[in-house]
C-alpha cells in the first residue's frame, strides 16, 4: 500500500500528541551541534512516533546529515538530549553508541554503501550475523527481505554488478532486516532516476510502516518528501513544519 501525500498540520499534531502518550522511538530535545564555531543545530526539537515517517528538507550545508548522524550516534553532540529507541544516547561512549546503532537503527545512504567484498545476500544478513544469529537463519531472513523488495534474484551478485536502484533496494533490505525500531536514510534517492527514486522512497516508507519503525529521511526531492507523514525544514539550526 502506497502513501501518496503529506499530512496536514492537524494530522501532524495528532501524531505528535500520540507520541507524547506512547514513548516515541525518536525524541530529541534542545539539540545543539557546533562545527568550527558555527551552530549547525541550535536547540533543535524532534519527535517521531512509531510507524511514522518524517522528511527533513533543507539546502545543502543546512545540517541535515549532521542531524542524522547525531540521531544515529555516529557523532557526538554539544548539548541536548537524543533518545533513540528508548535509550538516551548522548551520554554513551562511541563504542556503546555503535552497539546501540547496530541493534536499534537501520541506516541508508545516498550511494547504498554496500560492502564490496560481500555478496548481496551476505550484505543483507550482516546485521543479523553481528547480532548473533546463526548463518542459515540470517540468510533465510535476508532472502525473505530481498524477496519483499523484489531483488531476490540478485542474492548471489556482488555490489559492483548492481544498478543504482538495485543497490538502494539491497541497502534498504539491509537496513530493515533486523527490524529496527528506527530507520534513518540520508538522501536515499539522491543517485537515482525519477522512477527508481519514487520506487525506493515508497518502499522505504511502507516498509517502515509495516515493521512499525520510526523513519527519518533527509532529502532534497519533494517527491520523496511527499511519501512521508510529515515534512520538516531545517533552517538556521532548527526544524519547522513545511508544506510542499
Amino acid at each position: 500500500m502506497m502513501h501518496t501525500g503529506h499530512m496536514t498540520e492537524a494530522q501532524a499534531g495528532a501524531s505528535t500528541s500520540q507520541g507524547v502518550d506512547a514513548p516515541a522511538p525518536i525524541a530529541v530535545g534542545g539539540l545543539c551541534v557546533e562545527l568550527s564555531g558555527r551552530k549547525l543545530l541550535d536547540n533543535l526539537e524532534l519527535r517521531v512516533p512509531k510507524g511514522k515517517a518524517v522528511a527533513i528538507m533543507g539546502p545543502s550545508g543546512s545540517g541535515k546529515t549532521t542531524l542524522l548522524h547525531a540521531l544515529a550516534g555516529i557523532r557526538s553532540v554539544d548539548r541536548g538530549k537524543v533518545v533513540v529507541a528508548g535509550t538516551e544516547i548522548t551520554g554513551l561512549s562511541a563504542a556503546r553508541r555503535a552497539r546501540h546503532r547496530l541493534r536499534s537503527i537501520g541506516l541508508m545512504f545516498q550511494f547504498g554503501e554496500l560492502i564490496p567484498e560481500l555478496s548481496v545476500e551476505e550484505n543483507v544478513s550482516l546485521p543479523l550475523r553481528l547480532l548473533g544469529m546463526a548463518r542459515a537463519e540470517a540468510t533465510r531472513m535476508a532472502t525473505g527481505w530481498l524477496a519483499k523488495l523484489d531483488v531476490e534474484r540478485l542474492a548471489r551478485e556482488f555490489p559492483e554488478t548492481l544498478s543504482g536502484g538495485e543497490v538502494q533496494r539491497v541497502a534498504l533490505a539491509r537496513a530493515l532486516v533486523h527490524e529496527p525500531p528506527v530507520l534513518i536514510a540520508d538522501e536515499p534517492t539522491g543517485s537515482l532516476d525519477e522512477t527508481n527514486a519514487q520506487l525506493v522512497a515508497r518502499l522505504l516508507v511502507d516498509s517502515g510502516k509495516r515493521t512499525g519503525a520510526a523513519v527519518v529521511i533527509a532529502t532534497h526531492d519533494p517527491m520523496v518528501a511527499s511519501c512521508t507523514d510529515r515534512i520538516l525544514r531545517l533552517r538556521s539550526g532548527s526544524l519547522s513544519e513545511t508544506h510542499l
Partner: peptide, 18 residues
C-alpha cells in the same frame, strides 16, 4: 581509501571502531 571506506560503512552500521 577503500579499506577506510569499508571501515566507515561498518561504523555506520554499528560496528565499534575497535
Amino acid at each position: 581509501p577503500e579499506r577506510d571506506r569499508r571501515m566507515q560503512i561498518l561504523s555506520w552500521m554499528g560496528w565499534s571502531r575497535r
